[in-house]
Amino acid sequence: MSLKNLPACFILVSVTLFGSSLSAEELNVYFKTTPRIELLRPFADPIDLSLLITGVEGRPVKQGTVAIRLEAPRPGRFFSTDMPLVEGTLLNEMQLPLRQGRANWKQLFPIRGEYRLMVDVVTADGSKASKVLSFAVRENRQKWLALGAFSAGLFILGFVAGRVFTGARAGEVALIAAAVLLGGSAAISNAQQNTPAGPAILEIEPATVGKPSLVRWKLVNDGAADRSAALTLTITHLEKQKVVFAVEKIAVPGEWSMKFNFPDGAEYRVAAVGTISGRTPVRTEEVIAVTGVEPPLGATAPVLSCFVALIAAGLGVGRWTKRRAPALSRPLVS
């Protein structure tokens, strides 16, 4: 074989080996959030998420589906978030049809940290593309301020106790009252009446925090030839009155399902509206109570230990300042 044919051989082998990945590269996957990623905060307002799939020429893919899998941030090394059972779990798994190359949905991110969004695209002509996207959601600044103020309060409590327990007057004072903890009362939401199923059925698996539940909507088979519908599905956290998930007018062939991880042990309303051409919209609604699960001791112990350690540090500093003061004020004897 002459050296002239060597490059041609390399090209042939490359195309043979990497042919499938080359076809995947023909599709571009763009991801966008509104508001933009830097402004996202956990359990704030629902975020508009958008995927745009284009071909190599930059034009949106006309037809296809996108399989979406959203994973929650992994647990931290020492401190957990306020929802430790959600950490590292599957938040959402669904398949959305592409409309002018786009797939849009709303999602509320429950905790801070780095989320992973896995996207698998299949177009009508069989082209495939996969992409894993990571993005970080930062904690709300007010929560850090509240934590700082609470920690300072614990330290001051220990500081005062340390001064009181030190010296001659120690026995005269009883124990100082423990920290006054402020709490808001949880608003109790009115339970919604489940509407009768009618021409559509909404099925939701019994939901537990940390475990994805199957949410399924389907039209009752009434013998109609065309069962395609435009589905709008909304999941609302009733206590917070926040939309935690929504898709709007997605084209479905009479049935659609997803796995959804309800992030909080509370009541949720799942409402679906199916619009079928030539018929009145079909509304189905369910109110479900999500079973809460106690956080593991591994998540609770570190933070409580830190709080007690802060009080202990305050005690030490309080004692030190009390003992130091008389020493400084003592007159020098010549």
Binding site: T81, D82, L85, A146, L181, G265, T300, F307
Partner: peptide, 25 residues
């Protein structure tokens, strides 16, 4: 911050979440 008794939990639920590092269900 950690007890599961409904009366305590429900009263301090928002405070637990407001502290960012206190786990709640």
């Amino acid at each position: 911050l950690a007890a599961s008794y409904p009366a305590v939990h429900d009263t301090l639920h928002n405070a637990r979440h407001a502290l960012a590092v206190v786990p709640c269900h």
